[in-house]
Amino acid sequence: MEERVLKNKNIKIAVASGKGGTGKTLLSTSLFSVLNKIYDNVYLVDCDAEEPNSGIFFNKSVINQQIVTQKVPVIDTDFCTFCGRCHDYCAYNAIFILPPAKIIKVIDELCHGCGACTVACNDNAIIEKDYELGMVTEFLLKNSSGKLIEARMKVGVMSPVNVIKDALKIAGNSGIILYDSPPGTSCPFIQTVTNADFVVLITEPTPFGLSDLKQSVETLKTMSKNYGVVINRAGLGDSKIYEYLESNNIPLLLEIPYNREIAVHYSKAEIAAEYMPDFKEKLIEMFEMIYKEYGNSSN
C-alpha cells in the first residue's frame, strides 16, 4: 500500500538563484538522483538553456528530440509598398526599412515572433517562415523510470524563453518535476518558476549572494510564489544572509556546508549526495517537508 501512495506524488519544484554559481545544478541533480531512487516518475528539467549541463551527471539514453522554432516574417517585395507600418509595429527593431531606396529587411535574430508585423501589413506582403531556436531532448536514465529533459538553445538566438517553454510543456504536470532554473531574475528565470508549485532559492552567505537573493525574493513576491532558501557553502562569508532571512520570515530549508568533499565529487560529475549519507538524508527531509506543504497527491 505504501508504495502505491508514493507512486502518485505530484509536485513541481524550481531550483533557482539570482547569482550564478551558487549550486542550482548541484542541488537539482542531487535531489533528482536521490528522489529517483525512492519514487517513480521523477523528472529533472534542465531549463538553463544557454548552457545546460545537468546531463553530464547521469548515465542515460536519448528517447526523443524536438526542434523548437518560432515564426519570423518574410517580406515579399513584389507586394510591399514600403509604407513602414510593420516597422512601426515592431517593438524589437527587427525590421529595417529605407523607403526611398526601396530596401526592407528582417533581422531574424531580433525577431521575437510576436506576429505584430503580419497584423500591421495591409498589402499581404508578409508571409511567415520557421526559424530554429533550439532543441528539447528527453533522456531516460539507465535502470529507472526517471527522465531528464534538456532545453538547449541555438547559439546566437536572442532569448531562451521559447525553448524553456517547450521543455516545460514536454515535462507536463504529473510526477515529481524538478526545474534546474537559469541564473538571474529576468525572463528565462520567470518562465521557469511560473510553472512551479514551490521555488527553492539557493544562495551563498556572501554579499553578492545576499544582494542577488534579495532580487530573487522581490521577483517571486510579485509573482505570489511560495519559496524557501538553501544556503550553500555555509561557513563561508558572514551572517548577514541569516539576519535577512530571519527578519523577512523566509524559511531556511537546508544548509550545505562549505566542504571540499562535495566539490571533489562534483568536479568528477558524481552526485555527492550518493556518497554522503547525511547530505542525502537532509535532501529527502527537505523534499518531504516541501511536499507536505505544497504537493498534491492524485490519490
Binding site: A91, Y92, N93, A94, F96, I107, L110, M158
Partner: peptide, 8 residues
C-alpha cells in the same frame, strides 16, 4: 533601446 539599437 532594449533591442536592435544597431539596425535602428
Amino acid at each position: 533601446a532594449s533591442n536592435g539599437a544597431g539596425p535602428a
